[in-house]
Write a protein that binds this DNA or RNA. Structure first.
Length: 819
RNA sequence: GCGAGUGUGGUGGAAUCGGUAUACACAUCAGACUUAAAAUCUGACGGCCGCAAGGCUAUGCGGGUUCAAGUCCCGCCACUCGCACCA
């Protein structure tokens, strides 16, 4: 064995070995438990960044560990290949997106191979491949038939100068990123998925995801935003004006109505009220970031119109207000200024009446319009007042009584509302999967027949300006209607790229099946047992995937309810306390580190520097430290192997020092197993192995010293192999082992090595550490107490006091309470 | 504004179920080797007092519970993230 650690040679040899043995290809196997480990696939932007390295090293360590546990492990890799950056690059460098993307994939694949990740490359997929997106198109037609995909008008950012739709990130301060002209909102036809049909289940099933971070589940819960209330009608000139409220118990305190500026009633009132028309015009043009909206001044204007309260029969004014959202509920609200903060501010500002209808027991506060109270919205310990026959009830009592009355009168119904909106899946972009629809003047939107799929995206394109080239390609869009045979036009919109990433995890299970979207093998691998990726996908990607999985299930393609059993959200990689980014100029290129130190050093550092779910502060010095550890490990093994083959271990004959090292070996195995499997804290696992190495270094060259060291080195190499697989591959051979380390099971703990004759215990007096003592492992409680009281330093502290109590924590400490 | 999370040496972090705070590294300092430097090896390394033994003190701040609190509870402060007029 070479004395010098030569990472380049070692890593190349290990990677060649894996390649020639096809080491990571897997098939279905009913004799072993399956384990599907997946890291979020990358967008092929050009090169790997440190975030990728961290993400994929975590996934690889888990995969390799699970394999050593005897599981049938699938770990695939692929490319989230559609998206806007390819179009931007095309415009900038005049290279077609398909070519640019393919070149990036070649480069990044080579980098992933250099890092030694244990992927089954036979299952590699790229979402821009027609073999992939054809199934997405096929599935869309199925959803269309079920009514789960539909078309409606929706707003987009429109640049009049460039005659094109802009993505949100292409709008900078309200201006087009290309021509700096103002961007306007325009309504166009778009395709949607009815995710709201699954809102209830998506919410309820979050409770099943016990191995997901609570943070992610909370974010999804809030995003879905379920609320229970009543939808009720005020009478407006004989037609119902519908409002939604979660507080029907305060209905008798509703003193006016407020409608959104886009509401039909507002438009109607504006027809013969120029001042109002101007107000509406101004307010609909204000297009600010959502963050500013919450703090924006609340403005409104009286329409002069009035509506009739459904229970009191009183006439209430209708106002237009800038804070009412057209997109939630019915775009109109009943205003209860006595018990809603916004309504209160609005009523005070415009002099509208305020009626208190909820009182708090034991609070002698009497309402007047100039003061406000901290329990105005409480639902507990309150009583309804000023509400006629509903007086005297608590929140739920009034809620039910009023809801029942409205339902009996036919003026309202209980309703559950969601904040979640249907998912808009069409994009007016080129570099995406074509939506398989043909628009016919006679038949409307007709799906492309299955035998005509896929609708292939042309890849030989030229960009003129920013619009999609598809819209200038009659050879693409001119076609016949599959229904009537008449002249028709193909849809030129493409799918949102979240479509591809919502089901790729399932496709890896049968990536090479050309006759079906998913099959029995795909269902064998699903669901993903361990998913690893960035927290930035906590809502959209993970919610869409969960939705898609339920769609696939309802189509009979998978038999599970959820796609990802266990989720690990890895933290960001920071430099100088900030996220690495090109604009800040604080990036670190993984390639230069691999070239300098080797992949194992980079892998080791990224796993050692922080627990996986925390942010990781980059440190060039600490990378060198990781490299230094590998060099030391290599030297220790080289020195060990240079001598004669070690004698057989004779556990019974070991002296205390040798037994201590051997105990440390087996304690470390126990700890590292727990850190890898249950805790997923690889940093502490590495620290424990480093400690063991420090202990092993103290052994000398006697027969049994060498035998103890041989056992420890075998364990160390096996335990580190998920994180630094190349060096461990080489060390395993150097230790004289002929089996491929990949096929060697995880080391077991020898319980007999863990026993001790004596234990060091801490002795406290009144909770403060005063002494340490060695006690026989089998000492009785009384003997331990006795020994503790005899310690010199302890006697000093209890000399002038009476011992009241002695607490013994077996094997750990004694606390003497004395006063 | 609402919600979630974090706060421990010079730095990254450890302390898993309330039980010996600062493991493992990085940096720094000292020593060995060297003509010298790098590399490598050995040692020191929270603060204060002390020759030492040892003592006092310390986990953002202030209280509390407990024999015992970085860990649990209450109230503040700072930072990070998410949502953001959802009626």
């Amino acid at each position: 064995m070479d004395e010098q650690y030569d990472p380049q040679a070692i890593e190349q040899a290990a990677q060649e070995h894996w390649l020639t043995h096809n080491s990571f290809a897997v098939q279905m196997d009913d004799t072993r438990e399956k384990f599907y480990c997946l890291s979020m696939f990358p967008y092929p932007s050009g090169k790997l960044h440190m975030g990728h390295v961290r993400n994929y090293t975590i996934g690889d360590a888990i995969s390799r560990y699970q394999r050593m546990q005897g599981r049938n492990v699938l770990q695939p890799m692929g490319w989230d290949a559609f998206g806007l950056p390819a179009e931007n690059a095309a415009i900038k460098h005049n290279v077609p997106p398909a070519k640019w993307t393919a070149e990036n994939i070649v480069e990044m694949r080579a980098q992933l191979r250099q890092l030694g990740f244990a992927y089954d490359w036979d299952r590699e997929i790229a979402t821009c491949d027609p073999d992939y997106y054809r199934w997405e198109q096929w599935f869309f037609t199925r959803l269309f038939d079920k009514g789960l995909a539909y078309k409606k008008q929706a707003e987009v950012n429109w640049c009049e100068t460039d005659q094109t739709v802009l993505a949100n990130e292409q709008v900078i301060d309200g201006l087009c990123w290309r021509c700096d002209n103002p961007v306007e909102r325009r309504e166009i036809d778009q395709w949607f998925f009815k995710i709201t049909d699954y809102a209830e289940e998506l919410l309820a099933d979050l409770d099943k995801l016990e191995h997901w971070p609570e943070r992610v589940r909370t974010m999804q819960r809030n995003w879905i935003g379920r609320s229970e209330g009543v939808e009720l009608d005020f009478d407006f000139n004989g037609t119902p004006l519908t409002v939604y409220t979660t507080r029907p118990d305060t209905l008798m305190g509703a003193t006016y109505l407020a409608v959104a500026v886009q509401h039909p009633v507002a438009k109607q009132a504006a027809a013969d009220n120029p001042a109002l028309a101007t107000f509406i015009e101004e307010q609909s043009r204000v297009k600010v970031a959502e963050a500013d909206m919450a703090t924006m001044e609340k403005l409104g204007m009286d329409t002069g119109l009035r509506a009739v309260h459904p229970l009191s029969g009183e006439s209430v004014p209708i106002w237009v207000a800038n804070f009412v959202l057209m997109s939630y509920g019915s775009g109109a609200v009943m205003s209860v200024p006595g018990h809603d903060e916004r309504d209160h501010a609005f009523a005070c500002k415009y002099g509208l009446p305020i009626v208190q209808v909820v009182d708090k027991a034991g609070d002698d506060y009497t309402y007047d319009a100039t003061t406000w109270h901290d329990w105005y919205a409480d639902k507990e310990g309150t009583t309804s007042i000023n509400s006629g026959e509903f007086d005297g009830r608590d929140f739920q009592g009034t809620f039910d009584a009023i809801a029942d009355r409205l339902e009996a009168l036919g003026r309202g119904t209980r309703k559950v509302n969601f904040r979640l909106r249907d998912w808009g899946v069409s994009r007016q972009r080129y570099w995406g999967a074509p939506i398989p629809i043909i628009n016919c003047e006679e038949c409307g939107s007709v799906t492309v027949p299955e035998e005509d799929l896929p609708v292939v995206l042309p890849t030989e394109v030229e960009f003129e300006g920013v619009g999609s080239p598809l819209k200038q390609m009659p050879e693409f869009y001119v076609t016949q209607c599959p229904n009537c045979g008449g002249a028709a036009e193909r849809e030129t919109d493409t799918f949102d790229t979240f479509m591809e990433s919502s089901w790729y995890y399932a496709r890896y299970g049968c990536a090479n099946n050309h006759s079906a979207m998913l099959d029995a093998e795909a269902d064998y691998w699903a669901p993903v047992d361990q998913y690893i990726g960035g927290i930035e996908h906590a809502i959209l990607h993970l919610l869409y995937s969960r939705f898609y999985h339920k769609l696939l299930r309802d189509e009979g393609l998978v038999s599970s309810d959820e796609p990802f059993t266990r989720l690990l959200t890895q933290g960001m990689v920071l430099k100088d306390g900030a996220k690495m980014s090109k604009s800040k100029g604080n990036t670190v290129d993984p390639q230069s580190l691999i070239d300098r130190f080797g992949a194992d050093t980079v892998r080791l550092f990224s796993m050692f520097a922080a627990p996986p779910d925390q942010s990781l502060e980059w440190s060039d010095e600490a990378v060198q430290g990781a490299n230094r550890f590998l060099k030391r490990l290599w030297k220790m093994a080289a020195a060990h192997c240079a001598g004669e083959a070690p004698a057989a271990l004779d556990a019974a004959s070991l002296d205390d020092r040798q037994r201590d090292v051997r105990r440390k070996t087996h304690e470390t195995i126990a700890k590292v197993s727990d850190d890898y499997g249950r805790r997923q804290t690889f940093n502490t696992a590495i620290a424990a192995v480093m400690e063991l190495c420090n202990e092993v270094g103290k052994l000398d060259e006697s027969d049994q010293d060498r035998a103890v060291r041989a056992e420890a080195l075998h364990a160390i190499v096996l335990m580190l192999s998920p994180i630094v697989p190349h060096i461990c591959h080489a060390l395993w051979q150097a230790l004289g082992e002929t089996d491929d380390i990949l096929n060697v099971p995880w080391p077991g703990v020898d319980e007999s090595a863990l026993t001790r004759d004596s234990i060091e215990m801490a002795v406290q007096v009144n909770g403060k550490l005063r002494a340490r003592m060695d006690v026989p492992a089998d000492a009785a409680r009384e003997a331990v107490e006795e020994l503790a009281l005899q310690q010199d330093n302890v006697r000093k502290f209890i000399a002038d006091a009476t011992v009241r109590k002695v607490i013994v924590v077996p094997g750990k400490l004694v606390n003497i309470v004395a006063k």
